[in-house]
Design a protein around this nucleic acid. Structure first.
Lengths: 157, 157
DNA sequence: CCGTATCCATTCCGATACTG
DNA sequence: CAGTATCGGAATGGATACGG
């Protein structure tokens, strides 16, 4: 895994991540895995994805060390479970979910998560600088000081 | 924007977000915008993307309200700047970057950000539950209690 | 149930040439 | 500089049929 391939931008971590999980389905499969899906048919039902595509994506995710095949109790079939590397995608999926909730629905449109519920159990993301100061207001969800964000070691995110 | 189209999964915020920015280039363009890129040629140079594709993606990002065309000082050309909606993608890009740094490089490989530098100015992501408790260890970056994460209002992330 | 194999349509992307 | 127009190849995705 992380084998030799032609990266879109070999030095940029964002580009590498996008090359690995930036297709139409991978992150949705991972989302379903966070949701508790483990078996081929569960993914297929939830996603409405064609079987050959699903098989292909699962294979790729396993190759990249994001999912892992484990036999179930009876040893009758294998299940797909997140590895540590896969679980680490949680911030990405959560970030996409938060953004989608706020910006990808029309006014009256329903979606699957209540954003304003006080007692919601869904975690939220915070962005902190090196000193633990919060860079993003959780109310407005807008970056406060963009200038502070532009300085990577070589000016690249 | 957020116009009628055939969503991969109409009710899932994650799926909608992926439908909008889940292609090969969009998030990399947004990354460069966070990096300070504003002009067509800047994006093109940084990304090594074909010009027609870039024009297409910029148009789409503007249509989706993620970028905005503004005339520069002299009014001689237009520049592309992030809107609030675009800036809100920061957590997604940052999440991808963190994941890429940790999991998308080989052992000895260099990448553009120093992950272990103490004085780095790069912000980090934290995942907090409703009570402000941290769900993810910043050291291991591994989700501590997956069970707590599986309960959306309808069991969907 | 869990895939594989085949076929086809569509989309995506890059290279090149061209324009104001 | 900032795009548009066109073309061809590659990758992606879906439907269906088939096999262990």
């Amino acid at each position: 895994m992380i084998d030799a391939k032609t990266w879109t931008d070999p030095h940029c971590p964002v580009a590498r991540a996008v090359d690995i999980v930036g297709d139409k389905w991978s992150l949705l499969i991972v989302r379903d895995a966070f949701d508790g899906a483990r078996r081929f048919t569960q993914f297929q039902r939830n996603l409405g994805i064609a079987k050959n595509i699903l098989a292909d994506r699962l294979r790729a995710l396993v190759d990249d060390g994001i999912l892992e095949c484990v036999p179930n109790a009876n040893g009758t079939r294998t299940e797909y479970v997140l590895t540590g590397r896969g679980a680490d995608l949680f911030t990405v999926v959560l970030g996409l979910r938060q953004w989608g909730e706020r910006h990808a629905f029309g006014e009256g449109e329903k979606h699957s998560i209540l954003t304003d519920s006080v007692d919601q159990r869904v975690p939220t993301l915070r962005v902190l600088d090196g000193d633990g100061r919060e860079l993003i207001s959780s109310d407005t969800h807008v970056v406060r000081d963009l200038g502070a964000l532009e300085s990577g070691s070589d000016g690249r995110m």
